[in-house]
Amino acid sequence: MILEARNIGFAYRSGAAALTGVSLAIEPGRNVALVGESGAGKTTLLRILLGLAQPSTGELWYAGSPLARPRMRDYRRSVQAVFQDPYSSLDPRHRIGRIVAEPLRGLGLGVDQSRVAAALDAVGLPADAAGRYPHEFSGGQRQRIAIARAIVGNPRLLLADEPVSALDLTTRVRIVDLLASLCAERDLTIMLVSHDLGVVAELCQHTAVLEHGRLVEQGDTDRVLGAPSHPYTRKLIESVPRLP
């Protein structure tokens, strides 16, 4: 078990519940999809898993014990993130080399240019990308840069928030392929937040469906998407546009 959310609840200051009783386990080598629509609480759960927000109830278990402040640096070395909008996730004033090296600097791993070059290489970008600025790259390339930043410190878990939904279809295929190959080569597990069930089916072995802050269904992706038991899951699957 890499990470386990035990009975997580989150309420806004107004008292409205964003999450209720969410329990989810992430095992090594089994990519997890968190599926749901806007307002379901996906982003809130992700912020909690990233240690950016404190749950109102329940706790996160990491490496055999509840996650606490003093272990945050250790946790962050193992758990990194990729965001949806590659235009918002790269600082326009930093060169790519500096952007990718940021976790090395922040997590005390030692800023080593060879590791930056290796990360850029792993995501299929040339080494000379390090000297350039984000605006010189397309959306798909920017997302590769964001992935390079996430994997530069060799984390075990990558939390990916809609990493391909802002991308064109053909670019989407290439980024999904990249993520799949990183999992295979680097002993990396992904938790994918997505509303795109095709991408989920392609990349994840486990699927959890979130509706109105509750997990209404979870299990093997084949089972959840192939034989959904909850009406909301069925509605989601029926809504996916398919080629004739």
Partner: peptide, 21 residues
């Protein structure tokens, strides 16, 4: 063809689910 293949990839992945169970 690239566009159609890309779309088919995800279509097919979704179609595969449930086959084995």
């Amino acid at each position: 063809r690239t566009l159609v293949d890309s779309a088919r990839r995800f279509d097919a992945a979704l179609k595969r689910t449930g086959r084995d169970s």
